[in-house]
Nucleic acid binder design. Structure first.
Lengths: 196, 196
DNA sequence: CTACTCATTGAGTATATACTCATTATAATT
DNA sequence: AATTATAATGAGTATATACTCAATGAGTAG
């Protein structure tokens, strides 16, 4: 009773989503749908048999990516009680998706609204998990609320990513700058403590 | 001896550049050239009589913008010996171009290479001027080099701008968040001093 | 006044790319 | 085996938009 067919269909859908991830990671979100079809090894028309529009393909892709990264963030928070561990684990997680994540933050403006929402939710999840650890920093005791510390951290990381051409044009950026980023943020947030 | 004609030509060129600034500020850099022509009150073809391509128009516009903002940054540095004054003046300067600047940083990736360079130079100018003041902060005495403090500041400001939809969807963002941004950064950079 | 130069015009061209749909191939059902 | 349902195809259509170029007309020179 028609199980092979359904499997095939879902499999094709996944092939398209996986191809879209790779193509967008490499060329950015303005890559033509034809390139995705080619990468997936399916016909161009097939994309529109699975997704009503390019926008819905992007939405589905971000939904999937958001779920995956969200789970990763959740694990971070469970396994890292201290700030340094959390920061390093965060960068390691992002590093696994560096290219895709980079295009995501630099081209957020051209994503369909639904996809923007999905990404905004992801930020909220991260903010929540970071909040617990950040509230114990010296900075938080001195009038900088945890969410501002989170914004400072995200700002710093995103700033480096967005200026990748400047900081690390060819090699992946996050592995290379992890120490510097973590050290900077720790020092700023913890000066009070470190001076014992 | 043909002075009126030349004046007219330069005037049309400026009308196009000024219109491009307004259109890009409002709609972003993917606005069609036809919209710029309409805003400038000239024919579509006129744009290509003055600029060989859309890319060269954008380059010329950024050149002009860069010169103007660069001069503003230079003034900042001269008139603000203390960090708080410098930060506030910086935000006030950016606030004058908030919409355009926002599109600039969010769509940097789709600018022509020459325009990217122009913008990168602008960042360098800012970094230089900030360096002098930043090196006197407590953070700089504790192992965070001035350029990292600069990156942290820029990251924070850009992060707020890029998430404008979240922080201040309708009203201008910078005036509204100046106090919070300045307070956060001052506290992080100066904790050592403020604790006397 | 006449001839000429050149800035300006806007309809037309070229291209890229999202999306359609009649056709084909293949699995499910009888 | 024959019939039916549906997943997949890819050539074709629609649209957006950068850029062209022959025509226009206003300023300039003799």
């Amino acid at each position: 009773m028609e199980t092979t067919r359904l499997q095939q269909k879902q499999q094709t859908r996944q092939k398209i989503l996986a191809a879209a991830y790779r193509v967008y990671a490499q060329k950015g979100f303005s890559a033509p749908t034809a390139a995705i079809a080619k990468e997936a090894g399916v016909s161009h028309g097939s994309i529109f048999a699975h997704f009503a529009s390019q926008a819905q393909l992007v939405e589905a892709l971000l939904e999937q990516f958001g779920t995956q990264l969200g789970a990763g963030l959740h694990d971070l928070a469970e396994n890292n009680a201290d700030l340094q561990g959390l920061l390093r684990a965060h960068l390691a997680l992002l590093a696994r998706h560096e290219q895709f994540y980079l295009h995501l933050i630099t081209e957020k403006g051209q994503l369909p609204p639904q996809a923007k929402l999905t990404f905004a939710n992801l930020q909220s999840v991260a903010a929540y998990h970071f909040g617990r650890v950040l509230q114990h920093t010296a900075a938080a005791q001195n009038g900088v609320p945890p969410y501002m510390l989170f914004n400072t951290w995200m700002g710093l990381v995103h700033y480096y990513l967005m200026n990748k051409e400047l900081f690390s044009p060819d090699a992946p950026l996050l592995p290379r700058y992890t120490d510097e980023l973590v050290h900077t943020f720790l020092t700023l947030a913890q000066i009070g403590e470190e001076q014992k």
